[in-house]
Write a protein that binds this DNA or RNA. Structure first.
Lengths: 196, 196, 196, 196
DNA sequence: CGTTAACCGAGACGGTACGTCGTGTCTTCAC
DNA sequence: GTGAAGACACGACGTACCGTCTCGGTTAACG
């Protein structure tokens, strides 16, 4: 039984509104220019309410990241290409598209550069998103579809790297077509002649 | 011939000292925590001198980026693997290692997310660094070493992406060994049977 | 009934502390050398608090002047000499002695020279302080104690002028003895033979 | 014989121009707001020239005061009223009128409050201007024109005080008529019945 | 009559105060 | 007890002034 405290219960809708507001502000103006004041105003909330729920701006940032993180469940279709698409197409949509996470990611990257905790958080998150791809590739290897000497982790790094690079460094949209072309080229390089 | 202006000439050594100080401060503490005051002090310079040369912190950031940018000249060895190594090993050292640019890169990425000018700047810089690899691959294709259907740009994206991903998202060091293993795996996937 | 505003009420003790600190700083170092920072520190207050209450240094100066202004109430003793002493001895103590107003007065005089508002403020203040003397002299005239042709305002100007001159121009202390000697000489000059 | 240095001699006209400019700036905007830059510009001179001749703003201020100071020579007419007028009318014109000294005086008063040297300077100057009046009164006493018990210095204090008070504290013009009315009232109070 | 030393202007430089604004803490009123 | 409002201490930002300095260019006396 959850301990029910005495007074007025917290408005649960506030969390959602704040995260949404925070992400929007940060995406538009950057972390520094995104004022707690502005976030509160955009969420239709007082500044004190923010500080009652999160001790500081960083904590709010972490919370936003947590809220936005969703685990991508890979299907086991028996077909490597399909499996990889199942992993990377939603990931592209989520992390490199127009979604809230995509907008925050650059901020996280910058924060990770001089914040140990953020570094761990980002790495953890990134790895868990890609884990499906690793599983899919291992299944393919077990089915004997992979060439000799193919490094599974490296392969995933290259696919994901091409996508994140395009999004964060080149600033170009990561379309579904681009994801497919990356995966196709990778598969062409790693599967045996018989495969496909 | 540059017209010599009347008053006391600017101390050219200041630029260097300031860039060095700024990079160090930003790398250590992050963009926000890197105070103009601290940068000035570290460079042995008055705060006013900073503002005389750069109108604000952002302008200084741009200038630092400009100063740090160096073009990597690829050698034409006739061997694809060697050519790629010649491009990506220094790039890894420069952009993903311990060098000043590597320390600033995450800051630039975050800035690019909400600043059109910075976005263009980063993309431009990134592309020019990799251009050597594109050239090397095209030479290899002309020599008939590449499999049919290999997309050169995509291939470069994957190599560079794997490296930047490892550095910025996973926070792991981009060693020379890692660079080699990526390139080897890529080559294994794209060259014809006869090649190698 | 004053409407109580919503947020945290202003700490009323701050005004007092700040005025005291400001006066002390200005008296010691002069208006320019009296830093807002130093005033805030001396008052045990943040610099922002100063700017929340007064838009700038000048406004604070005005406020100090207002706080320091006190009306001197002349007693009606029926004796001109006593009445004048009742007005000018406290005034000397207040405006030309060691009191806070005395220390600020030169600053106000300088400000008045190029600031219409300050000029009006100073003149107003000065006149109101002396008004008691004017009243006392008029009472004396009504009692028939004054010589023919004595100009009351001029007489007050001369008494007060002698005091302020001594304090501000000569930098000598305006002692009680000096006040008495001035008043005595004036009375000797303006009262009828029968008077006294 | 003045040591004549080798190089280009100083432009003597600069001193005059600078003093004029400095007085104008200070009178218009006050000591603080009167920038060295602005003074230099107004004098049609470089900022460095100012600092070559005066080590700092205060020194320039002193110099201005020195330049402006002129000794008032009292005539010995044998008539007290005429003598006093000869002293105080030019003094009123000079110190309390529209002249340059009148414009600087408030600034000096403020500076004297926390600057020992300036205090001495002002007192000295003030006393020397009035010395003529003291002499005239003493002559009158020797002629037996003064009532018993009249304090000469106090009398001068009152006359001068009334004038300076009117100018600096009340901000009203010190007209020739006002000077005369003050002197007349004083004389009426201090001379013997036979006198006049 | 050419040297030469000091002048003059312009403007960079290290410092420091100003006034603005954001952070995180707090205190008060209303619900 | 929660939420809104806003005061508070702290500290960074960007501007402006001070007094120092280092330039290029000028000018008059000396040699």
């Amino acid at each position: 039984m959850t301990k029910r405290s005495r007074g007025r219960p917290r408005d649960e809708s506030v969390d959602t509104a704040v995260v949404e507001a925070a992400v929007a502000e940060i995406a538009e103006k950057g972390l520094t220019a995104a004022t707690m004041e502005a976030i509160a105003a955009r969420a239709g909330v007082g500044r004190a309410t923010l500080y009652r729920r999160w001790p500081n701006k960083s904590a709010l940032l972490y919370f936003c990241a947590d809220q936005l993180a969703e685990v991508i469940q890979p299907a086991d279709t028996g077909d490597l290409r399909k499996d990889l698409l199942t992993v990377f197409e939603p990931l592209a949509e989520l992390s490199y598209g127009d979604g809230p996470l995509a907008l925050l990611a650059p901020t996280f990257i910058a924060a990770a550069a001089h914040d140990e905790q953020m570094r761990a958080f980002v790495a953890d998150n990134v790895l868990s998103r890609r884990s499906g791809a690793v599983v899919a590739l291992r299944r393919a290897r077990r089915r004997g579809e992979l060439r000799q000497g193919v490094n599974v982790n490296l392969t995933v790094d290259m696919i994901a790297g091409a996508l994140s690079d395009r999004a964060y460094l080149l600033g170009k949209p990561v379309t579904s077509a681009y994801v497919r072309s990356v995966i196709d080229q990778v598969i062409a390089g790693i599967v045996t002649e018989r495969g496909s």
